[in-house]
């Protein structure tokens, strides 16, 4: 199971109730400066800052939101992870190693 790590220099913050990822200058050549997240995505991001894998995220999500449809939720989480990886906000970390390019 792949674990994920948030990129150093990317900070989750809240502005007027809107969740926003903001990149420091040092990583702006790697990922967007500002990206807005919805509440669930922000919750997942916070789990990822402590190094979660997909199962960890599903467990945390179920505990927080009491999921009605775990299969659909898993698809949504996988989609979120893909998006964060594509935007370079997230780095995959294999057991005993890392793909990190920082």
């Amino acid at each position: 199971m792949i674990r994920y790590k948030t990129r150093h220099g990317v900070i989750l913050t809240s502005i007027c109730g809107e969740y926003v990822l903001v990149s420091a200058r040092s990583v702006q050549n790697l990922c967007p400066y500002v990206t807005e997240l919805n509440e669930t995505s922000a919750f997942l991001w916070r789990q990822l800052t402590s190094g979660a894998d997909l199962d960890d995220l599903m467990a945390a999500l179920d505990e927080e939101y009491e999921l009605d449809d775990p299969a659909a939720a898993r698809q949504a989480v996988e989609s979120f992870l893909r998006q964060m990886l594509e935007l370079n906000y997230l780095l995959p970390v294999e057991q005993g190693g890392t793909h990190e390019e920082e």
């Binding site: 900070i11 913050t13 809240s14 502005i15 007027c16 809107e18 926003v20 903001v22 420091a24 200058r25 040092s26 702006q28 400066y33 500002v34 807005e36």
Partner: peptide
Amino acid sequence: ADAIPTLFSQFILLPDTADEILGLA
């Protein structure tokens, strides 16, 4: 939500640290 990205980009500061990001936010 619509205004945040533009406003952020109009500040004359590329933040170097978490404190600067939180200050801008």
